[in-house]
Design a binder for these strands. Sequence first.
DNA 1: TTATAAAAGGACAATGGGGTCTTTTTATAT
DNA 2: ATATAAAAAGACCCCATTGTCCTTTTATAA
Lengths: 144, 144
Amino acid sequence: MFNKETEYALRSLVYIQHQNDRNIRPGIEEIAKEIEAPHAFTAKILQRLVRLGFVQSAKGRGGGFFFDPNKPVVTLHDLIQSTEGTRTYEGCGFGLKTCDDAHPCPLHFQYAPIRAALQKLVREESIQSLARNPHSHFKAATEK
Amino acid sequence: MFNKETEYALRSLVYIQHQNDRNIRPGIEEIAKEIEAPHAFTAKILQRLVRLGFVQSAKGRGGGFFFDPNKPVVTLHDLIQSTEGTRTYEGCGFGLKTCDDAHPCPLHFQYAPIRAALQKLVREESIQSLARNPHSHFKAATEK
DNA sequence: TTATAAAAGGACAATGGGGTCTTTTTATAT
DNA sequence: ATATAAAAAGACCCCATTGTCCTTTTATAA
Ligand code: FES
Ligand code: FES
């Protein structure tokens, strides 16, 4: 569904929150290994996310990544907006400039409800809700 | 939702079928202009689709693109498979190698039904069904 | 106060997506 | 047969994505 950067960002942040909930602040090497992502690239991505304020980091011995519990949760929409953009779940499936019930493309009436469900998903779910989802084991092997 | 190549391919083919239904075999210049796509790139894409047998072409004076009515319809899934691949609507939204109710990622139970709806859409709709959709005007302006 | 562990930063590189342009081939109208 | 109209083919280009690697900064532990 999403591009590599978004996937790595998603998995990284969920892993960080998951570990934070166990009082651990994981470092880059640990994160990259656990989420099965290239560590240098993951470092680049997290560096950006820290700059954006989505997550915090501590340098030096005993450092690592962590969330400030006083900050609002990071929704998937927030994250995706900052990486690949929301084109995937906003805008016309046919590529038209405007999407409008009054000027529908041939896909409109079938596609619009699905797109709306996607939008609801990314706006309602957050790094925190995913990290605390009791019905999941995210430490599965990751794709090629 | 889809990448440029898929969008241009989609719009081109729907336009060709639409014109064919009016006994017209449009050429590249006309197609590219109507669907608001770069004509040289559109030519490349259609060239590939002809090689793949999705659509036919006639060279020389009075030539153009057309569908063989005796061939089976081209589903969106067929088309997408031949361009960007089906990663967008198949596979795990979190990027895991396998998607499985028994080993769900944190997105699985919310994402799987939406993905299933997308799969149904691309498998049931075809260039022909879209071209003959009475509730649409695809000749709207197209995105940036 | 010095060694060490960790993140930050920056330069570089491979690949694919998204395109342009020119030449070649093929068919048709005259 | 020849001029013309059209698609096919191939060389090339730019830039975003997806990375790697090396140096620098910062914090802590001993
Ligand atoms: S106009 Fe295309 S999805 Fe609405
Ligand atoms: S395991 Fe991720 S969507 Fe099914």
